[in-house]
Design a protein around this nucleic acid. Structure first.
Lengths: 144, 144
DNA sequence: GAATTAAAAGACTTTTTTGTCTTTTAATAA
DNA sequence: TTATTAAAAGACAAAAAAGTCTTTTAATTC
């Protein structure tokens, strides 16, 4: 469904939301440990998200990654688009370039509702909401 | 959603259903042309599907790939499982190994209905049905 | 302002996926 | 039974995705 890169990105965003809700910042090492990902790899991903304004960061001592209140309202759709592009929102399920409502591939109609549901879900789900459930221990980002 | 390999596989299965409905067989070259795919690549994919009994084939002159009536009832789920495994049916949306109803990832609940819809759709959609729509020119496998 | 800390940048490697080519095997037709 | 046809098998190559490492830049603290 998502690329590995995108999975890490979503997990990292939720973790950062959680760790920075008191106004502090999280370092890349803690993020990597917290979401069980390769340190340098998630660093690269977050740099890209930073460039696109999806996550905030600050260098130097007491520096790290963080999300402000508006960042906590970021939808999953925003993250997925930034990382994987919008294939999942609009690409053809059978990989045809010419696929459209007027010139549909054999799976076009079967996909319409699924695609709509995925899009709705990604748009309405916000990083902050997921972080709150995590805080209540209703969901988990890793084993423990 | 699907791997490129799986996209080609589905397209090829529909094309084979169409071309072999009169009891004849289609050669790999015609398949490659008919679905706009690399010839040797789709050959390899169909060999694997042949090994798994998802498609029938015969060597020699008048040989080629074909589907009998029961093959025409093959669901997309069967093809997808044979090619991509069952990640799409049961894997965690965030790539967590430990994800389950009892120990859900942050997206687990959000994914349940989507996954169910995808599974239903893949189970109920049969190659033969898609081929019939194609015959009626209601859908397309390529440009023309 | 010098030392320290932590992210940014970017080169590099490994693995997986996708795609290509050649040889072998099996069926049919003459 | 020999020639021909077409799939099966498998080695190989290219491209993309995933992951690693080193150097540079920008903050903070002393």
């Amino acid at each position: 469904m998502f690329s590995k890169t995108c999975e890490y990105a979503i997990r990292a965003m939720i973790f950062i939301a959680q760790q920075s809700k008191d106004g502090s910042r999280v370092g890349i090492k803690d993020i990597a440990k917290g979401i069980d990902s390769p340190e340098h790899f998630i660093a690269k991903i977050l740099q890209e998200l930073g460039r696109k304004g999806v996550v905030q960061s600050l260098k130097g001592p007491t520096g790290g990654f963080y999300l402000d209140n508006s960042g906590r309202k970021t939808s999953l759709a925003t993250i997925v688009k930034a990382v994987d592009g919008d294939d999942i929102f609009s690409g053809c399920g059978l990989g045809l370039k010419q696929c459209s409502d007027k010139h549909p591939c054999p799976l076009h109609h079967e996909f319409i509702n699924i695609r709509k549901d995925i899009t709705n879900m990604l748009n309405k789900t916000k990083v902050g909401d997921l972080q709150e459930e995590l805080d209540k221990k209703l969901t988990f980002l890793r084993r423990d």
